[in-house]
Simulated assay, not measured.
Amino acid sequence: MTMIRFNPFRELDSWFNAYNRSLANQGKENPLSADWKPSVDIVESDKSFLIKAELAGVPKDDIQVQIDKNILTISGERKSEITDEKHHRVETFYGSFSRSFSLPENVSEESIKAESKDGILYLTLPKHEPKEKLKKIEIH
């Protein structure tokens, strides 16, 4: 027999989370949608940076990756799957998302590669040697 520990605050916590979501979504068309930020991991190796963004349920056609003025932005939308059926719990965020990151000077913007696999977006940002910005001026 398995013993389950009683937690009287579990349902209360769930109710508060739903309440906070509803406050965040006041005035929006779908009360169950919200702006959300997917989780992101950034890993650095000797040759590149790897950005992994959790985008489960977002088709790759609904994801945009752009670079503007040395800022990498991942954006898109997870469309709601809510139907007219009775839902007992909805914890998945739906709606638009956007994450932006400043790129280091040693990233080769022209060589960035993107792949979407199993609900994860993989961005590989190869490194290059930064151009020398310090120019020594000879005094005559």
Rank of each mutant, 00 (worst) to 15 (best):
E77P: 02
R5T: 13
P38Y: 00
T92M: 05
S22M: 09
G76N: 09
A18G: 01
V90M: 05
P59K: 11
R89T: 06
R21S: 03
E11C: 02
Y19M: 12
T83H: 05
I67F: 10
D61I: 07
L72R: 10
A34G: 01
S14N: 14
Q26G: 01
V43M: 12
I42F: 01
A24W: 01
I82G: 02
L32S: 01
D61Y: 04
D61E: 15
L12M: 07
E85W: 06
A24D: 01
P31K: 11
L55G: 11
S75V: 06
S39N: 11
G57F: 08
E11Q: 14
I51C: 12
T92L: 04
P31D: 11
S33D: 13
F93K: 08
P38D: 06
D68Y: 08
D62N: 14
S22W: 05
S80Q: 05
N17F: 04
L55T: 07
N30K: 04
E29G: 04
S45Y: 05
L32V: 02
K37C: 03
E85M: 11
G57R: 01
D62R: 12
E91A: 04
S75D: 07
R21M: 07
D62K: 14
F49P: 06
E91M: 07
K79H: 02
R5Q: 13
I71G: 00
D68G: 04
T92N: 02
P38S: 10
K60Y: 05
P59G: 05
W36S: 07
K69D: 14
T83Q: 09
G27T: 06
E11N: 14
P38K: 02
A18E: 12
I4G: 01
A24S: 05
A56C: 02
N17W: 03
I42V: 15
Y19S: 04
R78C: 07
K86I: 09
S22V: 05
R78Y: 06
A34E: 03
Q26L: 14
S33H: 04
K60D: 14
D35H: 08
K28Q: 10
K79R: 11
V65A: 13
R78M: 09
W15C: 02
L12S: 07
D41L: 15
I74G: 11
W15I: 11
L72F: 06
F9R: 12
V58E: 03
S39V: 11
V58S: 04
I71C: 05
N25P: 00
Q66W: 03
H88Y: 13
N30V: 01
A56Q: 04
V40Y: 00
P38W: 00
S33E: 15
Y94D: 00
D41M: 14
E54Y: 07
R5M: 13
I51V: 15
E81W: 03
S48N: 14
